[in-house]
Amino acid sequence: MTGILDEALQRLSGTGPEHDGWLSNHGPMAAESLVHHGRAAEVHCWIDSYERRLDETPRGIAPIPADEWREPLGDPVRTGDWLAFFDHAVHTAPWRDVLTLWWPRLLPGIAAGATHGVIRVGHAVRALLAEETGQRVTELGQGLAYWAARWQPLSPAGSGPYPRSDPRSALDALPRIPDQRSGIRSRLAQLADLPGWPSAAGAVPGSAQEPVEARLAAIVTAAIHNHTIHGYGNPVLLVHAATAPAAVLRTLPVLPPALHGPSLAAAWAATAAVTAAYAPPTPRAYVPVPTDPESVLQRAVESGDAHAIKFADAAIEAWTRAPDPLLLAAADNATDLIAGE
């Protein structure tokens, strides 16, 4: 059944990273999630329904020289060029070396494509750690290319004291942008003028004595919990407050230790930014309903929505690390909220 993921990636290989404007292509990410959780038999049926909305791979303008990458970074017009650049890179050097080279270059722009760049890379890395195949190496290149094309730095984080040491309290204390009516680029731009943003984004919750993996896992868990009471504001976009740090956590095992600290800081900044931009200031009461991992994933698959599938994936993964029933209930709640949009 593991070959089904490669078949799915091959089916999607002619599609671009976006469709209908700036909407991200979730096909590879959702397919990897389903295979990872033992639902390979449902992948092709899901793609049958999903792929009709996708666009073809964009054409390039001009090749990007290896030593002149800075100028086209973050230029979506060069998406086709970045796809060609990284396809060549991952097939002419070990994929781990390519990832290690480009991760610190791309990390400051973690907001790329509403964080879908880093999320797609995280799914590709998890697939490669399960089994290294040519199609999965290609998919990693596609994810890195999307990240590079939509590279978007967040407003600079500060340093200094921040009064919240655990991620859940830190998320609760985040300031909110004043205008939550526009798209993500406009919302993230408001962070620069948001009082308290630099200190909130720059102080990663948790103790410096804790392992980076544990602190990242705590951020993912807090963001999943937070969705239950704030997800009503924008259930789809707030999914990324959890799935972005989950992607960083999945990538951490193949990164050198020197990149772990910066990865943690960027992951927290992404979670904080999405929360500040989309979470309404007033929480809504939530009563969890007991469930189990199989039921959670089944409901997400039946919804047909890729965000519901990816959020269920992250919640089940977090539950596997620490069996907190609220994580599974949060995923079911997110599926309901997304379906109700």
Rank of each mutant, 00 (worst) to 15 (best):
A112Y: 01
G14D: 05
S33N: 10
P257I: 06
L144C: 09
R250H: 11
G231P: 01
H37A: 06
A145V: 11
A200R: 04
D305N: 14
V239T: 13
A149F: 05
L252A: 12
H116Q: 15
P28Y: 08
A89L: 08
A189P: 00
R59Y: 09
G38C: 11
A267I: 09
Q152K: 08
P211M: 06
H307M: 08
P281K: 07
A127L: 06
A322Y: 04
N226W: 13
A127V: 03
R187V: 01
A265S: 11
W69K: 04
Y278V: 02
D179C: 13
G60W: 03
H116R: 03
R284Q: 14
H227G: 04
P288W: 13
P262T: 06
D67P: 00
D87R: 09
F86E: 00
W147N: 08
T57E: 08
S159R: 15
W95L: 09
A314F: 00
H36P: 02
L252I: 15
A127H: 08
G304H: 10
A145Q: 04
S295H: 14
G60E: 04
G80A: 14
D336N: 08
T115Q: 10
Q180V: 11
L174I: 06
A93Y: 04
L238A: 06
A246L: 03
M1S: 15
A308T: 03
P211L: 05
W22E: 03
E210H: 07
A8V: 03
P76M: 06
L140K: 09
T15A: 14
S263M: 03
S155I: 10
D48G: 06
A339S: 14
Q298V: 00
